[in-house]
Structure formats: structure tokens, C-alpha cells
Write a protein that binds this DNA or RNA. Structure first.
Length: 368
DNA sequence: TACGCGTGGTC
DNA sequence: TGACCAAGCGT
């Protein structure tokens, strides 16, 4: 209920030799840092794109996406001018797709308002879609070498162990505590390597389970290790079990062998991605599927057999899909920007969520 | 503040 | 195998 006081911050800070900590962390980072594509230079655009992709996403997953993205959109101008569908296609499979749409929106803002130069100050960066406190600090410190904190999950884990901080890091206000500490602890001579070093340490050594304390360059400064209680930290209270939603996913094939796909709504889950029609089984009894399809798409169909079951787990819910094959002799009279029949040779041009990629793959396998 | 928002790897 | 986890942000 009350904020961390200056005095409490001071009590944490007294626990470590700040100058030794900085030196040992940065020396370790210089010798151990991974050779990653976004570390080739300090291009603020590359730093920005990499930080967005890395949100809640592992380095190994990001690398191929980052490389393809930079080939396709080498500068802010290329990304600003691209079709949104093209950007989503480049993001396909990476998840959290609003990151891609917000990134493009922000890049367009940078081109329109700042002449294509990525801002180097808090106010302007913060106003851009998709740039929150962490990403702002990461860009300022890594691209512009400014002494700004960049508090992510790694940093909270590492510092909670170093200082034995028992705050619940799941709570938004915990970030403030770590930022306050970092404003004192960050190395003003090399904020870039300091911040990256802290994150790299969290990724390689000070890992969530079984951290490699014996290899840790700052073990001597770690309260958690001294107490033998490093694995108790950080404290992170989660809960909330997932809902399960059941659907029929419809593979509706016309006489040409093309299949019906539709664009999802422009907000919410998987916004603006494409999918096979989804019939919500909590709304529609399978017995009335034919009528529902007629109503929704204006198509008269024969309902065929089940192709497969797909169980897809999201961060916050689960989909149970029954994939049902249908046939129709009708053609479509709806807006082709939202729903269309597509040939199996062109279906791959559309961005699909992973759950529906599985259906797409089944159809493509049938082809060959 | 709490929750919605993806995916793949790990144990 | 299901729960947990990973370089967060928008609302």
C-alpha cells in the first residue's frame, strides 16, 4: 500500500559494493556475451525491433524471425510503407501479434513526426505504441548509451536474489523498486553493457530454476546466495486457471477445390490474422451447423466428416477444435477483404495462427 | 490494478 | 502431462 521509501532503497544498496559489482558484471559480459544478430551494431531501429520481438519470447525463437524481418524491412521507411498483412505474415508463429501492429504503427509515427529518426528521449519514446517502461529503457541504454534502467523479468530475478528482495514481482509496482535501485546501481560509464550484462546474467547464469551460482561473476555480492536461499527468489504469485472454449473449425471446399478462410476482427485475440471459419459450440449445436453456415456465410453446404481434433493452449485459455470438412456448390457474396475462397497454392500467403496452420498443413499434405 | 494477449521449451 | 516459464504492453 505504500511505496518503497528512499531509506528502504538505501538499505538495499548498502548491501553491495557498487563499484566492484559494476566492474565484475561488465567484465563478465564482455567475455561471455552471445553473438546475436541485433548486437552487430547499435542501430536504434534494430535494437527496437529486437526488444519488441524478445518480449516474453526466447532468444532462440527470435533469431530467425529477426533476420528475416531485417531482410524484408531493413529500415523504418520499409516497415512504415509495408502492408499490415505483410508485417503480420513476417510475424506469423511468433505470437502476441499486437506487437507487430503496434510496432508498425509506431514506426509510421517516427517517420511522420521525427523524420525517420528513432527518438532518444523518454517522452517521445513513451508516446509510441508498444514501447513501455522496459523497452524505453532498453532503447535509451543500448542504442543511445543513456543511464536509464531497463527492468525486465531477468533484472527483477537477478536483483531480487542479489538484494534478497521479497516483493511479489508479479505486481506492477515491484518494477518501481528495481528501477529505484538501478538508478543508483547502473554504471554511468557504460549503461549499455551494464543493462545487457544484467539481462544476459539472468538468461545464462541466474536462471529461474537451479541457477549456476558457482559460475556467477557477482556471487560475492549476492545476499540470496549468502543465505542459501537464492532459489526462493524471486517471489511471483500467479493463479487463474484457463477457460476451455470448444469450436468446430470448418474446412469448406467449393467445386474448384478452393477453401473458405476469413479474417479475424481487428482487435482482441489474434487480431487481423486469418483462419478457417469457427463455429462456437457454446452458441451453436452441431445439429444446426448447416443453418449456421448458411446464416453466417450465405453458403449451402453438406457437412462431412471430422478431419482431426486440435487442442491449442494459449497463455490465458484453451481451444478444443474439431476440424470438420464441408462441401458447397455456391459462390461467395461477401467482402473478399474479410472472407474468401482461396486455392491451396495461395493459402500460404495469408498469416495464420499456429492452431490453424495445423489445419492448413493437413490440406497441403492431402494435395501432394 | 488485473487481466487479455501466443508460442515453444522444460521438467 | 500439465504447469510453469520467457528480454512486457495496452487497457
Amino acid at each position: 500500500m505504500k511505496n518503497m521509501t528512499t531509506k528502504q532503497i538505501s538499505q538495499y544498496l548498502e548491501k553491495v559494493d557498487i563499484h566492484a559489482f559494476r566492474r565484475e558484471l561488465i567484465t563478465w559480459f564482455e567475455s561471455e556475451m552471445r553473438d546475436l544478430p541485433w548486437r552487430q551494431d547499435q542501430d536504434p531501429y534494430k535494437v527496437w525491433v529486437s526488444e519488441i520481438m524478445l518480449q516474453q519470447t526466447k532468444v532462440d525463437t527470435v533469431i530467425p524471425y529477426f533476420n528475416r524481418f531485417m531482410e524484408q524491412f531493413p529500415t523504418v521507411h520499409d516497415l512504415a510503407e509495408a502492408e499490415e498483412q505483410q508485417v503480420l505474415k513476417a510475424w506469423e508463429g511468433l505470437g502476441y501479434y499486437s506487437r507487430a501492429r503496434n510496432l508498425q504503427n509506431a514506426v509510421q509515427e517516427v517517420v511522420a513526426t521525427y523524420g525517420g529518426k528513432v527518438p532518444d528521449n523518454e517522452e517521445q519514446l513513451s508516446s509510441l505504441k508498444g514501447i513501455g517502461p522496459y523497452t524505453k529503457g532498453a532503447i535509451l541504454s543500448i542504442a543511445y548509451n543513456q543511464p536509464e534502467p531497463a527492468v525486465d523479468g531477468n533484472v527483477m530475478r537477478v536483483l531480487s536474489r542479489i538484494y534478497f528482495i521479497e516483493e511479489d514481482i508479479a505486481k506492477p509496482k515491484a518494477r518501481k523498486t528495481f528501477e529505484a535501485i538501478l538508478r543508483e546501481l547502473i554504471d554511468p560509464d557504460n549503461p549499455s553493457y551494464f543493462n545487457q550484462g544484467l539481462m544476459e546474467l539472468g538468461a545464462l547464469v541466474c536462471t529461474p530454476k537451479s541457477p549456476s551460482c558457482l559460475l556467477c561473476p557477482v556471487q560475492a555480492h549476492c545476499e540470496g546466495f549468502k543465505l542459501g536461499r537464492q532459489t526462493e527468489l524471486p517471489i511471483k504469485i500467479t493463479k487463474k486457471k484457463k477457460n476451455v472454449k470448444r469450436y468446430w473449425a470448418l474446412v469448406i471446399e467449393n467445386t474448384k477445390g478452393d477453401v473458405l478462410i476469413e479474417k479475424r476482427p481487428d482487435s482482441g485475440l489474434l487480431a487481423n490474422l486469418w483462419q478457417f471459419p469457427m463455429m462456437d459450440l457454446s452458441d451453436v449445436d452441431p445439429e444446426f451447423a448447416k443453418q449456421w453456415i448458411q446464416q453466417a456465410y450465405g453458403l449451402s453446404v453438406t457437412v462431412g466428416h471430422k478431419l482431426t481434433d486440435i487442442n491449442h493452449v494459449f497463455s490465458h485459455l484453451t481451444w478444443d477444435l474439431e476440424v470438420i470438412r464441408c462441401k458447397t456448390d455456391d459462390s461467395l457474396s461477401l467482402d473478399p477483404d474479410d472472407v474468401c475462397f482461396v486455392s491451396k497454392t495461395h493459402i500460404d500467403d495469408y498469416p495464420f495462427p499456429v492452431s490453424h496452420q495445423k489445419i492448413r498443413q493437413i490440406l497441403l499434405n492431402e494435395q501432394s
